[in-house]
């Protein structure tokens, strides 16, 4: 199996891309006007205080030195401290990333699975009422304005029907109660997850479904589908075994890409639902010019996308025997 070698090559590519991204980020953030110290508008900040603060952040050094320090620390595995929190960025990431992964991967996987299974069914029954109605739903879902749908769902399900919490990840009152057991806590998190998950699901589902539908339509024209039917396989066997598996391949490819594009929506969702994740932190860090935190968050996203694409490639190879590495 050459898979090992393939992964090795890709890993090297990832490392190289990493450094390029790091450099780009460094330049981008420093080129953007305003540094975190001088941006503070506080009547109590004397010019001396600003100078002291800049020195604290290492912003008093020339740019090339800052870059070298950044590179050196990065190689050493030190990612610095957030200007804003004053804490090592790794700690902040460690706090927030799991929450994002929990919400994000779940939503992507669920929407991909649902998109695939619905796209498959409606392509199979193309032209039917089911097909046209679900396709319209998919198109709507695909083009929905995220903040709008998020607020609508909060309003309807959390406020009006009072089925779910408005925001956050846990119920403080419940967690503060020493008698609360672990099951209850897990259920509580799940309960909080439902709405943001549904929003992300709604946003992503349509895209996956439409891709799956058109891919499935193409696949159904293939000769091997006729063969399968001629062999006397059941409709279900034809649909699942012969059509869907081939049709799902392009969806898997888009999965990696869509992950990159959905970060933006993730940040909005996290903000609306006060979900303590990395996306919200990133937006905050960028608007605060908190370079170290923003840098690491972007790098993480880049890493996430790169790794996701690697996983997709490996998965693709697993799904499609024609691909060999």
């Amino acid at each position: 199996m050459h898979l090992g070698k393939f992964i090795l090559i890709r890993a090297t590519q990832i490392v190289v891309s990493f450094f390029i991204i790091l450099t780009l980020l460094f330049v981008l953030f420093r080129v953007a006007p305003g540094d975190p110290a001088s941006m503070v508008i506080d009547p109590q900040m004397t010019p001396e205080d600003v100078e002291v603060t800049r020195a604290l952040f290492g912003l008093d050094k020339p740019l090339y030195q800052q870059y070298l320090i950044c590179l050196k620390n990065f190689v050493k595995g030190e990612f610095g401290s957030s200007f804003y929190y004053g804490k090592p960025v790794i700690e902040i990431i460690g706090e927030k990333l799991p929450n994002t992964i929990l919400l994000f991967t779940t939503s992507i996987i669920l929407s991909a699975l649902a998109g695939i299974s619905w796209g498959k069914v409606i392509a199979w029954r193309r032209g039917s009422l089911l097909d046209s109605s679900v396709t319209v739903i998919g198109l709507v879902s695909h083009t929905l304005f995220l903040p709008w749908i998020a607020l609508l769902m909060v309003w309807v399900f959390a406020y009006w029907m009072n089925l779910f919490p408005l925001s956050g990840m846990i119920t403080p009152e419940l967690w503060l109660n020493p008698e609360t057991g672990i099951t209850m806590k897990v259920l509580d998190v799940l309960h909080h997850m439902v709405l943001p998950l549904s929003v992300l699901f709604t946003i992503h589902f349509g895209g996956f479904m439409l891709i799956m539908r058109s891919s499935m339509m193409e696949t159904l024209k293939e000769d091997y589908i006729v063969t399968a039917r001629a062999k006397g396989l059941t409709e279900r066997q034809i649909r699942e075994r012969h059509a869907a598996k081939n049709a799902a391949l392009p969806v898997v490819t888009t999965l990696g890409l869509s992950l990159a594009f959905s970060i933006n929506g993730g940040a909005i969702t996290e903000t609306i639902f006060s979900w303590p994740g990395i996306g919200r932190e990133l937006v905050f860090a960028v608007s605060n010019n908190d370079y170290p935190l923003a840098q690491i968050a972007f790098l993480l996203i880049a890493a996430l996308v790169l790794v996701a694409n690697l996983v997709v490639d490996v998965l693709y190879a697993y799904l499609d025997p024609r691909i060999k590495y």
Partner: peptide
């Protein structure tokens, strides 16, 4: 690998996701 199996699992998951919160709503 069965896409079909994955889907069935998915529906079961959805089911859990709808049921649990409803239960919680009563509990908390």
């Amino acid at each position: 690998m069965g896409i079909g199996k994955m889907c069935r699992r998915f529906y079961r998951l959805c089911f859990i996701f709808i049921l649990v919160p409803l239960f919680l709503w009563v509990a908390i």
